[in-house]
Design a protein around this nucleic acid. Structure first.
Lengths: 248, 248
DNA sequence: CCAAAAGTGTTCCGCGTACACCCATGT
DNA sequence: ACATGGGTGTACGCGGAACACTTTTGG
């Protein structure tokens, strides 16, 4: 670290922004809130807020998440059990011009959550909603139609992280309710990757990977057809060999 | 983002810390500098420094790198060609107690560089050196013997990132000089992963992956034995299928 | 009976692994 | 001659891809 002079460093505002992803109706969706003030008033943005004094970055992200959704996320490194949602740091964005008002460095976090009831608008947001990420990212192509600030870029990075991480980890279960079927888990992969997977091979693959799924004991027919076994997420976090994303 | 009140956010100091890795004498080494002042005076630390006003995070990392090593890194997103070194953002560390003096958020960056002459001590560092990461991380086990601040943790995260990224990307070439042999590239993998690889299969694998290596035209005997073809890094960045790290 | 989803069996083939073998240089 | 590292050929086997087939529910 450089020489320390209490008056020699420029002060920064530090925020956390959240990329909260879920799967609804076979589509990967992100949580966005409507901005109530300038700049970008009326535009959609990722939820987030300032990091408080004496508050860790992950704690700030968990607090904002809970304020916006009522969700209690579980960062595997922070105590406090959640309802299955997964939280991890994504990346940090610090372009001097990213906020026209002042110098803001934002530490983006990624949250993977099971399908939730409609979000409750909280704090300064006029409203909040789940929007398909395809819509949000397409809108970002035309200037001044997409997300506020550099949030389209942050969202794209978060989506890419989620897409690659479910390949080699068991994180896809974070999109599922506590008990789920193999078919439901497959539809998560299909929604996140935007591809169709062979149900037979998928079934063999996930049930054959030790520690990925553990039988929960019951069955369900909520998807129609023959009753399917219910599973819970197993203890394994790394999948070896990984799930293979089909070629483009 | 939360309601904006210029007086309502706590001011943070924002720094960049650098995990600069290279391969020297068959060992993965990191650049460390000796601290010249309190706290942790005399202890080794990762190079780094304050982000300046109007300076992007990646630019700050590149500036610190150049000040400490003379290296001109190439972030594939920042203009300005370097000498082959690779720079990417690693993660951000913001525990309120990580610096006893004040609230500091540090955006760590990872640099992969070819073997370099002895580093020149710059700025406030009494001295600088390349140290095998195994030594640095083992020393961290005993309290007050390892790196300053939370730098052991940052280093461990950087090493883990490098180890996993050379699996599925062509980043291992960033540890090599502009022209290198297949054997030299193999010794990079062996040093970073700490394993022995079969030279025959490795050769077939890397020369058979399109875009990974392009023949540079000449040969060399600098490693002894039969002359080896020289290669340059090809355009491909993602390896498909990936290099497989042998089981533990 | 039929549709729909769950689950099993089987065949094929690419690719990773292991290892035998040959090649071209320095000493 | 021989040691050293470079490079090719080949046989084996695991695991992914494709797909036929059976099972168990709801309508």
């Amino acid at each position: 670290m450089s020489p320390y002079d209490p008056s020699a460093f420029p002060p920064f505002a530090v925020t956390v922004d959240l990329v909260v992803l879920t799967v609804r109706r076979h589509a990967l969706c992100a949580l966005v809130v409507r901005r109530g003030e300038q700049p970008f008033q009326g535009r959609w943005a990722l939820p987030g807020g300032f990091v408080r004094d004496e508050e860790d970055l992950a704690a700030a992200a968990a607090r904002e998440l809970s304020e916006e959704t009522g969700l209690c996320a579980h960062d595997p490194g922070v105590p406090g059990v959640g309802n299955g949602a997964h939280l991890e740091q994504l990346a940090t964005y610090g372009d001097p011009k990213r906020d026209p008002r002042m110098r803001v460095v934002s530490v983006a976090h990624l949250v993977l959550a099971p399908d939730l009831p409609a979000p409750r608008a909280g704090g300064d947001a006029n409203s909040a909603r789940w929007a398909p990420v395809d819509e949000l990212l397409e809108a970002g192509e035309q200037a001044s139609a997409g997300l506020a600030f550099d949030h389209a870029r942050i969202l794209a990075d978060g989506v890419e992280r989620a897409r690659s991480k479910i390949e080699y980890s068991s994180l896809a279960t974070a999109f599922c309710p506590p008990e789920f079927t193999v078919g439901e888990l497959r539809r998560v992969y299909e929604a996140v990757w935007g591809v169709a997977l062979d149900p037979r091979n998928f079934h063999r693959k996930v049930t054959g990977t030790p520690g990925f799924l553990v039988p929960a004991g019951g069955t369900t027919t909520r998807q129609g057809g023959r009753p399917a076994q219910l599973f819970r997420a197993g203890g394994a976090t790394l999948l070896n060999p990984p799930m293979l994303r089909p070629e483009v």
